[in-house]
């Protein structure tokens, strides 16, 4: 194999890497040019870096927020300029959208954080178990348990937000349909008011943090959390 053959193979590898990096990373244009050049020329070094630094592709919360936002805008458009507009006025819509955007960002940040190895609840739990088994000093064990508690709370917060996003998405779809129906059938707005109230309740949940007791219930399972949530609501 000559130097030219090696060069050709390296070039093919560079083109394939550039395509791969472009496929898997969505970057602003300026950064994309740098990434493209590095993928082409220094692909054995840049490829692992570019792929390691890409954002998690399945930010479900963000996607759901986006669908929900579209549905909310359509719901508002359906009642704008009609007697039903006070049910979903522009100011309320703006506030809901702003709360959704903020909660979506928090959810994305949490998801990214919890994707890291150091924030894996199972690893943290295994570490506590190992330290207990090895008879580690009390202070070390206490720090490990504290880490486990914190990681579990973060995981519970993400799970709760995820569930709230899903519920909110369904509620907003129902609200949109109900408003359109009320507009065309001139039916009562009482059902709509109920759904709007539910939407606000979910928005409020997204803006709150999680109490340790709730976190423990979440880690125990959704059923246990539902029981706890019901008892708190009562």
């Amino acid at each position: 194999m000559t130097l030219t053959d090696l060069g050709v193979l390296y070039g093919i590898g560079g083109v394939a890497s550039a395509a791969l990096v472009r496929r898997f990373t969505g970057k602003p244009r300026r950064e994309s040019a740098t990434s493209f050049l590095l993928s082409l020329l220094l692909w054995p070094l840049w490829l692992p870096i570019a792929l390691a630094s890409r954002k998690p592709s399945s930010l479900v919360g963000a996607r759901l927020s986006s669908d929900t936002e579209v549905a909310l805008l359509e719901a508002h458009a359906a009642v704008r300029g009609t007697p039903l507009e006070p049910l979903l006025p522009r100011q309320a819509l703006d506030r809901i959208l702003s709360e959704l955007a903020r909660a979506g960002e928090r959810h994305a940040e949490l998801s990214e954080l919890l994707a890291r190895r150091h924030f894996d609840p199972k690893l943290a739990e295994a570490r506590v178990a190992r330290l207990t088994r090895d008879g580690a000093p009390a202070r070390t064990l206490s720090s490990a348990r504290l880490h486990l508690d914190n990681v579990e709370r973060l995981a519970a917060l993400r799970a709760r937000d995820q569930r709230t996003f899903e519920e909110l998405a369904e509620l907003v779809l129902a609200l949109r349909a109900q408003l359109v129906l009320a507009k065309f059938s001139e039916s009562s707005a009482s059902d709509v008011q109920g759904i709007v109230g539910e939407v606000w309740a979910r928005i409020d949940v997204l803006g709150t943090t999680l109490e340790p007791a709730s976190a423990g219930a979440y880690m125990a399972g959704p059923a246990a959390f539902s029981d706890l949530a019901e008892s708190q609501a009562e």
């Binding site: 054995p44 070094l45 692992p48 870096i49 792929l51 390691a52 630094s53």
Partner: peptide, 22 residues
Amino acid sequence: VPALHGLAASLGQPLRLSAVVS
């Protein structure tokens, strides 16, 4: 770079490839 990645993994000090490159 691939040599260090392979050596570290086979000798019980595994590192991610991106970490080895960095």
